[in-house]
Amino acid sequence: MTQSSIPLETAGTNGTRSLIVAAARNYYVMSVLSVVAFFALWQIVSMNVPPIILPTPASVIAAFVQLTASGELVVATAETIWPFVVGLAVAFVVGTALGLLLGIFRPAARVLDPYIFVFWSIPNIAWLPLFIAWFGVGDLTLVIFVFISAVFPQLLTVEAGAKEADSFLVEVARSLGGTKHEILRAVVLPSSIPYIVAGLRIAAGRALVGIIVGQLLIVATGIGYMFQFYGETLALAKYFAPLIVVAVLAVALNRAVNWAEQVLVPWKSRAFT
């Protein structure tokens, strides 16, 4: 909700104070002010500390342009994106399918839940050395590590959603004569869709962490490796370039999931937006 139409008059009558209030009411003005303040603060701090601690905004932008022009950043981004996308996609499909199965078919849940709990409890990072022994130092290990990072949040969220299908709606469907199979299709699956999207939101975040950690610690490619290399060589201005890429990726992912939610869950009345 933007209220840009209201504050104009108050600003004229009551001076600076009202102007600030008016600006605070307008989200766009607030966003711009926040960004300007952030860069100003950064500039001031960076002018007063050695560049090895914090580079100036200008030098970061210059490094970003240089790394982009040389192709290094572009190649690294590609090296990061494809194992990320493949790992996340497989995790999404497997996690959703297994989550639905476990949520709907209780015997399967009884058999598999203990394993899932144990595997989920193990910190992801502990798998990496094992994966290297099994799959070598390469993209396969990265894909599998991303998969492991993302599959559990997807699975557990979808399982919880499928279990929680509204029992009243199931009863209504039964009264209309729906068979078990029909009710699954027409009631349980659709009511799980919001959970499938919610799972994807968490899974995508975990997958992003997974790919960066994998590349940074072990496989030495892509964005993760740029962090490691420019961190160790203390080339901080360049260090910020992959950081910007990750931030942009994260925002883009979030936007994509929001969009997916609006397409897939058009029936939700949103209380806050």
């Binding site: 209309l176 009631v187 659709p190 869709i193 869950v265």
Partner: peptide
């Protein structure tokens, strides 16, 4: 056919 107090419409339909 049954009609319920809680109605029970499928919200996604």
């Amino acid at each position: 056919s049954m009609v319920f107090q809680g109605i029970g419409l499928m919200p996604w339909r």
